[in-house]
Nucleic acid binder design. Sequence first.
DNA 1: GTACTGGATCGACGTTTATCAATCCAGCGT
DNA 2: ACGCTGGATTGATAAACGTCGATCCAGTAC
Lengths: 121, 121
Amino acid sequence: MPRAKTTPQKSAADDAECCVPNPSTGRGRARTVGSYAVLCKALADETRLEILVMLAERTGTLCACEIEAHFDLSQPTISHHLRILREAGLVRVERRGTWNHYTLERQTVAKLAALAALLST
Amino acid sequence: MPRAKTTPQKSAADDAECCVPNPSTGRGRARTVGSYAVLCKALADETRLEILVMLAERTGTLCACEIEAHFDLSQPTISHHLRILREAGLVRVERRGTWNHYTLERQTVAKLAALAALLST
DNA sequence: GTACTGGATCGACGTTTATCAATCCAGCGT
DNA sequence: ACGCTGGATTGATAAACGTCGATCCAGTAC
């Protein structure tokens, strides 16, 4: 606990405080963070990041089978990653007949940029 | 891998292709991703995100004791999170006497913006 | 109808992660 | 020298995560 207030003398270092007095502690928007946590969690995997880069490189859509062909992972694993990306709002799926076409949800990517901006303030 | 690609030839479905022909198998540059994965992993925790927001709100530094006082977590847990943030290059620590002062490493935050830009291409 | 195929879901297994209590280390003060 | 204090390190534990094989479901083609 920051108990350094008991001796306010200017003994050796007057500013030997542990930190700045910490006023009002801007506790305000440090609570909106949960929304970004799920987003970052979805991005915190190399496979998922690579999928997103694949989608970003192609402006069009990409079907799941092609995504799957790009990795040495099993089909359930890719399906699992796509599910996480979908639930995070990072990709959108469109069923065309039997095949699923995925597109990047750039609106959610913008949220990542918003986080970067929030931390640059 | 029994699910090997059978390369759906034009059996009967003329244009019912699963996706665009997929030429050149763009396997190229989707490899830079590993660098971003560690960054996102460090961000993929609510506590760590909140610490970063605290640091971003204050332009100055923040000592570990004050960070610890903000959470209901034990001291080793906070120390663990700070370690991960440090190893990810997101914060820089400066030992002043007994206390450790942390500052946000905005250069690394810029890397997050770079990822957002990469995905917006 | 049956047969086939793209994809999701279900268990299960091994690894990683967040958390804690206990301990250890390094400065500071008397 | 001591004691005290801020922080890091060390196990240990429980939850979450990534991966797979097996299975199931929904379209399509025959």
